[in-house]
Design a protein around this nucleic acid. Structure first.
Length: 305
DNA sequence: CGACGGGACGC
DNA sequence: CGACGGGACGC
């Protein structure tokens, strides 16, 4: 994923200057090179987002996973880092680059983007990003998405990481994920940006804060991640998976039909236990079996156009 | 005709 | 259980 060493940063308030944002990253232990706050082309008003440049893609990705969802230092009421990969090229290539992602459920409240990322990164080197979905108050919704660079790792993670223990307090639940459409339907209830922006003009400038602290250095202390996560990652539960040997040509036909109908059903997970009761056979890879038999359960067939 | 792949500044 | 707030490229 080439992303030109930069992140997109949203949820900016009009009084957040470039120097304030740089300082906020510094206080969180990150070293962005530059920040460019984008402005409305015509009015010159801050557009509410910025591009944050780093020396390398790795630094940018690292900062994204470590800071996304965390409070921005110096904001009150709290505003949280809202970070994403960004680049002209990435946007241009979005359509051509297929994305292979899994939905991860049963995340306990202590799981953040970074710990989720690290757990998967120990096993899957094509991993691109990991994201825990938070509500408006910054609390986890208990699920997230992990994106891979190739289908093999995505499929492998579907069963290898299902039921995984060692991240948070609950066994992970893994399902196929349908990538969110890049350009969603434009919201029709777009309120006038000026009115909301004016409400923030309270005279408070977020620009005088610069207090490099050991925030990130303490991450391991408060996250309880280091050590425990790495150790657990090495112990991959050998969940028995179903052998799928006796599938029919009719099922393969059903897959093709589903493709053509472009049905998308992303709310169902593979139920390994149920499958195991049907096909009792440990040791064999579910997906290898599925692939060789050309059979796919309808629930997990999805289409990428 | 027919939908790829080239191209990439530096603040 | 659950499916990514929305906002995305200036000069």
């Amino acid at each position: 994923m080439s992303m030109q060493c930069q992140l997109w940063m949203g949820s900016l308030e009009p009084n957040m200057t470039e120097s304030f944002i740089v300082a906020a990253f510094h206080r969180m232990g990150q070293r962005p090179l530059t920040v460019k706050v984008m402005r409305n082309k015509f009015t010159g008003e801050p557009a509410g987002y910025a591009f944050v440049h780093f020396q390398t893609d790795e630094e940018a990705i690292d900062a994204m996973h470590k800071l996304n969802g965390k409070p921005i230092p110096g904001t009150f009421p709290v505003v949280r880092f809202r970070l994403n990969t960004a680049s002209r090229e990435a946007r241009a290539n979005m359509q051509s680059e297929r994305e292979f992602s899994v939905w991860v459920g049963d995340l306990s409240s202590d799981v953040d983007d970074y710990s989720l990322y690290r757990i998967f990164a120990t096993k899957y080197n094509s991993i691109k990003t990991a994201k825990v979905i938070l509500d408006s108050s910054g609390y986890t919704k208990g699920y997230g998405f992990v994106r891979f660079g190739n289908e093999e790792e995505q499929r492998n993670a579907l069963y290898a990481m299902n039921g995984y223990t060692g991240l948070g307090t609950k066994p992970l639940k893994i399902c196929t994920a349908v990538p969110k459409p890049k350009s969603a339907i434009p919201t029709q209830n777009q309120s006038a940006p000026n009115s909301s922006a004016a409400a923030y003009n309270s005279g408070t400038e977020y620009n005088q804060y610069y207090d490099p602290s050991a925030y990130w250095q303490n991450y391991s202390a408060w996250s309880g991640y280091y050590g425990q996560g790495e150790q657990a990652a090495a112990v991959v539960p050998t969940t028995p998976v179903a052998e799928v040997a006796a599938q029919t040509a009719a099922a393969a036909a059903a897959k093709t039909q589903s493709d053509e109908l472009a049905l998308v059903e992303h709310k169902k997970c593979i139920d390994i236990d149920e499958m195991n009761q049907e096909f009792l056979q440990p040791e064999l890879s579910l997906w290898d079996g599925l692939e060789s038999s050309q059979w796919f359960p309808n629930e997990i067939v999805e289409i990428h156009c």
